[in-house]
Design a protein around this nucleic acid. Structure first.
Length: 405
DNA sequence: TAGGCCATCTGGTCCT
DNA sequence: AGGACCAGATGGCCTA
């Protein structure tokens, strides 16, 4: 049986990295349970970076795409069919027409309608092949009514379940680095981006060094579609053509100080970006005009910085986190002064509006130091609407400053 | 118009 | 027995 693609994605992204860090509720176990709980758990993970793995306990990213514990759903044929007598032929719509033929073809040769429970091995008539499963009961009006009610209740539950799943995905959209209210990421792209984001954060924690923004965006955009790649690149003030070109010319290797963070270990598909949004100029909009949302913002705004808890912000249901607690744990590791500066910067973020100018200024430069367009682009679709319902740009700039300082 | 994405319905399976 | 979960099927909507 084919597992849902999203679940496989999530599993590949998180297993081995977060397992064990969430106590009995590991993400891995969560993924094994259901995709909706997985999405909720991912959301919580983003809100609480303290749940990220201790890099000393979990060195390296585990890409275990092959070590799937096989699903043990049996394909045995000889089991009784359940619930056939409850099928409502009149209410069949959409995909429910599959079983109609076999139901319709079932003879109702049972004269006593109610309480006869049949087992699988009833004897057939003549040379007709034996039919397995319970005999059809006569569908009395009362039974028909009960069947309808049961089906309607099941449909309602399924709707609710899917709505919950969508809500969890919406929450996930709000904590991944790129969020737009008007241009929502698709479900699959949200999960892919979340996976990449976890990877990127884990690499940062593991290496203890900041990657350059090109590598960061490369990591985030791995496997994403072209529009999503453009979106993420725009969110991070980077022309997606630049980093993809740079990546291809570089022998498919990231610009990471640590060689383990390379294309070899993390293959990246070099896609061609040619959409208008990707052309020059799409990376020139300033944070002074556009504030974006990222998971780092979420962390900072989640409780440590009440000034960013805008009433308009309705996103996160996870409990607020203590940022200091999160990163102080990593501070115990021996880190370079450079790294220390980065962590220090993160930990002592105060969210003062005054910090925006310098950081935004830093973002006006590309990864190579060349000015990427200084002018403020007021209308650069599709990124012009990404700030939306709250203003937490300073925290986002903190994130970017991490890569530019 | 084709293709992507999504919501919904549905039956099967597993679990409590 | 009933609920949760899953995957297949279908149709609607949107966009290139």
């Amino acid at each position: 049986m084919i597992r849902p693609a999203c679940e496989d994605l999530l599993r590949g992204a998180t297993r081995g990295h977060v397992e064990g860090e969430l106590g009995s509720k590991t993400v891995w176990r969560c993924l094994s349970l259901s995709s909706i709980r997985a999405a909720a758990m991912l959301t919580r993970l983003f809100n609480e970076p303290s749940l990220l793995p201790d890099v000393q306990k979990f060195p390296g990213w585990v890409d275990d795409s092959g070590s799937e514990d096989s699903k043990t759903k049996d394909d045995e044929q000889d089991h009784c069919r359940l619930g056939d007598e409850d099928l409502d032929e009149g209410d069949m719509k959409g995909g429910g027409s599959r079983a109609q033929s076999e139901i319709a073809g079932e003879e109702d040769d049972d004269d006593d309608d109610d309480a006869d429970e049949e087992d699988c091995g009833h004897e057939g008539d003549g040379d007709r092949p034996k039919k397995r499963g319970p005999k059809k009961r006569k569908m009395t009006p009362a039974r028909l009514e009960r069947s309808k009610m049961r089906r309607q209740k099941a449909n309602a539950r399924e709707r609710t379940r899917m709505h919950d799943l969508n809500s969890a995905l919406d929450n996930l959209r709000k904590v991944v680095p790129c969020y737009s209210k008007t241009q929502k990421l698709s479900k699959i792209e949200t999960l892919r981006l979340a996976k990449n984001y976890i990877w990127a954060l884990s690499e940062i924690l593991r290496n203890g060094k900041r990657p350059d923004v090109v590598s960061y965006v490369q990591t985030l955009c791995k496997g994403l579609s072209q529009p999503t790649t453009n979106l993420v690149a725009g969110c991070l003030q980077l022309n997606s053509r630049n980093f993809l070109t740079e990546q291809c010319q570089d022998g498919a290797r990231f610009h990471m100080p640590n060689p383990s963070f390379s294309m070899h270990a993390y293959p990246y598909q070099c896609s061609r970006l040619s959409s208008p949004q990707c052309q020059s100029g799409s990376n020139t909009h300033s944070l002074r005009n556009h504030s974006y949302c990222s998971a780092y913002e979420t962390v900072y705004a989640g409780g440590a910085s009440p000034e960013y808890n805008s009433p308009d912000y309705e996103g996160h249901h996870s409990p607020p986190v203590c940022v200091n607690g999160n990163f102080s744990l990593r501070q115990q590791e021996p880190i370079s002064p450079d790294t220390e500066r980065g962590y220090h910067y993160s930990m002592h973020y105060t969210g003062l509006p005054g910090s925006r100018t310098s950081v935004a200024h830093g973002l006006a430069y590309g990864p190579s130091g060349a000015r990427s367009g200084g002018a403020h682009s007021e209308n650069v679709p599709p990124f012009h609407d990404m700030h939306l319902h709250h203003d937490r740009a300073p925290a986002y700039e903190e994130l970017n400053s991490f890569f530019h300082n």
